[in-house]
Computed example of a mutant assay.
Amino acid sequence: MQINWRYQGKEPIKIKTFLKEKGVSRRLLASIRFHGGELLLNGFPGRKVDQMEFTDQLTLRLPAEKSRQQLQPSYVPLDILYEDRDFLLVNKPARVPSIPSFLYPNDSLINRVWGYYLLRGYQGIIPHIATRLDRDTSGVVLFGKHRYAHALLDQQLQAHQVEKTYLAMLSGKITTAHFLLELPLDRVPGSFIKRRVEVTGKRASTEMWKLAGFPQATLCKVRLHTGRTHQIRVHSAYLGHPLVGDTLYGGELSQQLQRQALHCHKIVFFHPFKQKKIEVVAQLPADLQKYLEENQRGELS
């Protein structure tokens, strides 16, 4: 993997200063130095202390990456929403975990992306997942295709600059058109999985807009301003309107929908290499679309 820049500054600048401005960490530079990468100034080996002049070209050749664990490839086809040299966005189906675990070691979304990379013959890169979804939540998941891209995404995530919009079906009727929830979250004592609203917890901010009301549920657009575990699910339950199908937090299953009614509809992020915003949308999957239509007709059971 090779990254190129053409310096456009009027004043000379040291390579290490330029790279710091580009979000290249000391750790990544050390990896380049000691694990097979290269730093080239106008095609020749460069040092961090060398100076760049106007129109100089700097090349960063990243070392080949190896997984820290024995990652098993899964060759289940992916629904690719967007892909370029640096980023991959995938439409995750429900009932597929984002990452491998003890219960699901070989067929998480990461396993599937790894299998996709192998089938495509990609060399020297491994899956770097930047956004995760619960196993039963569907929708857009964002990957960096190399270590540097992932690091730049992480900076955006830490600064809350990645915009994630969800579609959620909340149980019951909601009359308020728009509301903002500022409710801190913490673990439920004795549970590794479950969360609750707790005044001493970590800040959690969720914004909701009512899109449509139905006899048994309300469809809402949801935007996260923080990224806490189960944030939408816990905030919805705290309102007294748990997500349809979310039995962990008081929602009820129906014959038409056997999982929580939550879908990551859209992700917007800044592409640091193309210098523009990228917007990627995943339409409602068939099970949620069917539930919505049958709710509208009053045919649910």
Rank of each mutant, 00 (worst) to 15 (best):
L248P: 10
A177G: 10
A94Q: 11
L62A: 00
G251D: 11
G115E: 03
V113L: 03
R95Q: 14
A217K: 07
Y117P: 04
D84E: 04
Q57K: 15
H265V: 11
V268L: 12
S67R: 05
T59I: 00
H128D: 03
L19Q: 05
Q256N: 09
W209S: 07
K194D: 07
D56N: 10
N42P: 03
Y166V: 07
D287Y: 01
K290A: 09
R112Y: 06
R95K: 15
P272K: 12
S301G: 12
D134H: 03
T247I: 13
T59E: 04
D134F: 01
R228K: 09
V280L: 00
E198K: 13
L78E: 06
N295L: 15
T131F: 01
A159D: 13
R120D: 09
G121I: 07
A30C: 12
S108A: 07
G251K: 09
R196I: 12
L89T: 00
Q275M: 12
L284Y: 05
Y116I: 06
K266R: 15
H128G: 02
M169G: 14
K22F: 00
H271D: 11
R228V: 10
L41H: 06
N4H: 15
I174V: 13
D56T: 02
G23M: 01
Q123Y: 10
I3Y: 14
R196D: 07
H225Q: 13
R26Q: 09
R132D: 08
R120P: 09
T131G: 00
H271C: 08
R112C: 08
H128L: 04
E83I: 08
E11P: 08
R259H: 11
R112E: 10
Q2I: 12
Y7S: 06
I129A: 04
G245P: 03
S254P: 04
L243C: 01
K274H: 11
G251A: 09
L300R: 06
A212V: 03
L60H: 01
H230T: 04
G201V: 07
K274S: 11
F143K: 01
